[in-house]
Write a protein that binds this DNA or RNA. Structure first.
Lengths: 343, 343
DNA sequence: CCATTTTGTGGGAGCGTTCCCATAAAATGG
DNA sequence: CCATTTTATGGGAACGCTCCCACAAAATGG
């Protein structure tokens, strides 16, 4: 019930030695006599001594903490990335400070400030869909605090990035639709502000071009990733005089919404319209029909990002180069684009 | 590119005043002349000054941080609880330190130590399914660090708890199955070590009793919540000489597994066997058939838990009482227990 | 056996704040 | 106009730790 926390000074006093010796024993410095060390360690254990990281960090001018700023927390994608990052961080004794921006620019700015105030040694960032201005992140650069972008990256700031090959993934997805005989393939794209939107759009277009298909503007829709709006656009596409016979959606939640609307209209999937998503969310294998999608190595993204960040932290500034790691995607074919053998 | 962080001393020197005055201006102390204050604030802004929380916290002996220990991160339940907690914490300027135990006791112990070392002002805990020993949590009590349990609670430690009415939820779920005419209702339960398992089991039994049904031991199976094992037990139930005509599962992931197996066997749902889950995960509305389940106010759990914790932090020890908040559940009926009008 | 190296320990500054106490200057009052 | 209060500021200790420097005692060597 004592509010007072046990400090090295308490241990020192009880053993009639100096705090310096206690500190050395506790940090494993070699020059402490064996029985002194033993006595200190025993007493520390007995008193439930826990080093005060606040003090250690202040003293060493580093927090042994890395910050993670993600846009949201609801789909399983980001939690799993965090899992991977945490795994790597924990291995080298780093703690992770997580904040989610709720897809709001203002919150992201506030979160960046919290990270700064807490003196994180580095920060992993994935942007909100709103973020257009990067001043709040440039501060990290100015203060020489290592930063790594992942997933929702920004090319205005020259730091390492971890992404998947969005272009190739979109290309594979579109080509797959072509292979199964689709002719009018629509694309529900993300906002052009996001790099991943642009890359996926490019992959889609290039696949069409490669196979000699025209690029039909009315079949390409960019939207802000708010699923409520997705519904409107899917309906718009279905109501076209000449509706598409396939839809490639920027991500799985969007594809899922499409699937629900298409099912409600009792159109046959994949015959009348096939659907492909991107990212292989947990749900995508469970729904009916199963959603064909591009799988990303989610946890690996977290691991690689954390590794890159730690390297940067442990390297003299200016020695490292802002590499961009591009991880591979995989096409997962399910019933939303081919008939299952069960039917 | 300067590694040196801006401190109040830097500001003081540039303006030829003392650090005390700068500190006062920055913290909004009244006795600072208006133009001095203005000059300080302007320069602070211009220099990108960020208060060093490490120093502030050390000085004030409180970290303005609350820790959250959750067993896992993969289902959407815990991320959403965290969302609620974060919302409340942020309102009063608290930061949140999150750690997940990967359903492993050892990791939970390690996480508790991290929280202690980082001098969190309080901690929100939900146990792993393995946790049987609570010494690592008793430390918080001994050090008078406020703690609140939620969801996976422990009654060996006398602190506030936030749970849902598991008993009533299970009762409603079971009674619903009885109402639709089911006679042999199985229950796939969790490990008896978890309070929620015991309560849900009780609710199940009492509903049966109320309606004069026998409690058939072979239809009640406790398992460790590892979904792989769930599959075995579901198959076992279906292979009984007299198989159940309904299944109430401890949680949605379990119910989902059951649904998949039942569908693979081409049994009709809900006619041959109805299924009910618990917690209304995001997927449960998307799969086919939709899963009947007991909804929990997930985000609210996080909010209430954080509120309780903050109250405790801001109260003289021994004034507060270890209340247990019991939130209400809601029965969500879907096609896994009744025919939808579409069929 | 005395000079030199090694070993173990203590003392103090510093990390960036806050907060109390002191003090000079300004304002107030009789 | 001088004593008293108020206002604005400075100085220093404290928070708990690390790390450098100093120094006594012990070990080593020629």
């Amino acid at each position: 019930m004592k509010r007072h926390q046990v400090t090295i000074f308490d241990i020192a006093r009880q053993l009639n030695i100096s705090k310096s010796t206690v500190s050395r024993a506790l940090t494993g410095h070699p020059s402490v006599k064996e029985n002194t060390r033993r006595a200190i360690l025993d007493l520390a254990q007995q008193l439930d001594y826990q080093p005060n990281m606040l003090a250690i960090n202040l003293s060493s001018s580093q927090s042994k903490t890395i910050g993670i700023i993600v846009p949201e927390f609801v789909t399983s994608f980001f939690p799993i990335v965090i899992l991977g990052a945490q795994e790597i961080a924990a291995q080298v004794g780093y703690t992770v400070l997580i904040s989610q921006s709720n897809e709001q620019y203002e919150t992201e700015v506030a979160n960046a400030r919290v990270m700064l105030a807490n003196r994180v040694d580095g920060v992993l960032v994935s942007l909100t869909r709103e973020t257009q201005n990067f001043d709040h992140l440039a501060v990290f650069q100015r203060k020489a605090i290592p930063m790594v972008f992942f997933n929702r990256v920004c090319y205005d700031i020259d730091v390492p990035k971890v992404i998947v090959d969005d272009y190739e993934g979109a290309f594979k997805a579109t080509e797959h639709l072509i292979h199964i005989g689709k002719k009018r393939i629509a694309h529900l794209a993300g906002p052009p502000s996001l790099y991943i939107s642009r890359k996926r759009l490019e992959g889609y277009k290039d696949a069409l071009r490669k196979h000699g298909f025209p690029i039909i503007d009315e079949l390409i829709i960019s939207y802000d990733l708010n699923v409520e709006r997705a519904k409107i656009y899917v309906k718009y596409l279905l109501d076209l005089p000449e509706p598409p016979d396939a839809l490639f959606a920027i991500n799985d939640p969007t594809a899922l919404e499409a699937l629900l609307i298409i099912k409600a209209r009792r159109l046959s999937i994949p015959d009348q319209i096939a659907v492909v998503g991107f990212s292989n969310d947990y749900v995508s294998s469970l729904i009916e029909p199963g959603l064909t999608t591009i799988a990303q190595p989610t946890r690996e993204i977290g691991r690689v990002a954390a590794q890159l960040l730690l390297e940067q932290i442990n390297t003299e500034a200016s020695t490292w180069k802002p590499v961009t790691k591009v991880l591979k995607t995989e096409l997962i074919i399910r019933e939303s684009s081919v008939r299952s053998c069960l039917d």
